[in-house]
Design a protein around this nucleic acid. Structure first.
Length: 294
DNA sequence: AACCAGGGGCCGG
DNA sequence: CCGGCCCATGGT
């Protein structure tokens, strides 16, 4: 299946801007993705995008939605570009799109993401899939709730979930008992949905916002991790420390229903260029200097 | 409010 | 090689 004439679509940027974890780079512009209960290869060159194995019907039913192809990114970019920082960030990551992922996989994945690095997060999710997910070819799909709910903390630990095992277990308990239903959450307004997600141990503001933005289509939320916090302080708070709440308020005021898109452009921009006030490198040097003084 | 929760990668010595 | 530090954070 080929698609062409699609602007605002750069597969490398879409996958590597931090919203999803189950992908593998084969070469530049060529990736394997495991999502929506399928394995998909995608290869992009200047004029076209090739998805395989994928019928036109599957594309229409699954991937058109997954890649958010019903959304007009030109309009979003034009609006956000009124801000000069965003204009640069958008120029840098012009092929980014927000994916529409599976809520259960997204929730477990972002619980795992806390205080963790991307390669490690990918490894852990892979381990969980290999243990409880369905095998397709040489790959394992992310497990369903039905399959994963039998996992005890000990077997989760074998997957290197570390201190997050008890959080995953709490999540599985609440979902399988029906106390919390992702399906019901879909119908709630964003504040209510967020409060519901945060009943789960290990799900705080940041993780809940990621689930809302990446799988429940709430594009107005602004997940604020250390990177976003630093880049926001650098560009909009005069390089001064700002509480998360203040950053949320600022983003809501400035970008409204497009705040989630702004977050993704800023995240990719900040991570890739490492241009922010408290970047790891600078902090390291600062620490080093202080140490030398002492 | 500081500290801790595994594990692993990275860096300096 | 080894200790120390860091990491898409949240709970106590």
């Amino acid at each position: 299946m080929f698609i062409s004439g699609q602007n605002s679509f750069e597969i490398g940027q879409i996958l590597e801007c931090g919203q999803c974890f189950r992908f593998e780079k084969i070469e530049e512009g060529h990736y394997k993705i495991i999502a929506r209960n399928r394995v998909l290869y995608i290869k992009q060159d200047e004029e076209k995008i090739c998805l395989y194995p994928c019928s036109a019907e599957e594309f229409g039913n699954i991937w058109h939605d997954y890649f958010d192809l019903g959304t007009d990114y030109d309009e979003i970019k034009a609006t956000l570009s009124e801000d000069s920082v965003l204009r640069d960030a958008i120029a840098f990551g012009s092929g980014i799109r927000l994916l529409n992922q599976d809520p259960f996989e997204c929730l477990i994945s972002f619980i795992i993401s806390q205080n963790n690095r991307i390669p490690m997060i990918q490894k852990v999710i892979g381990n969980i899939s290999a243990k409880w997910g369905e095998k397709t070819g040489e790959d394992f799909l992310f497990p369903t709730l039905e399959a994963l709910k039998v996992a005890d903390c000990e077997s989760l630990n074998e997957c290197k979930t570390g201190f997050r095992s008890k959080y995953i277990r709490d999540c599985l308990d609440r979902l399988s008992s029906g106390e919390i239903s992702l399906n019901n959450i879909k119908a709630m307004d964003t504040a209510e949905a967020k409060a519901e997600l945060m009943k789960i141990k290990g799900v705080g503001t940041k993780v809940a916002d990621c689930v809302l933005l990446f799988s429940l289509r709430r594009r107005e939320v602004f997940p604020t991790d250390v990177w976003i916090k630093r880049v926001m302080e650098y560009f909009y708070f005069d390089g001064k420390e700002a509480p998360i709440k203040e950053i949320h308020g600022f983003a809501a005021e400035k970008w409204g229903r497009y705040a989630g898109f702004a977050q993704q452009y800023l995240f990719y921009y900040a991570r890739t260029l490492q241009i922010n006030a408290g970047s790891s490198k600078e902090n390291k040097n600062k620490r080093k200097n202080e140490k030398n003084k002492a």
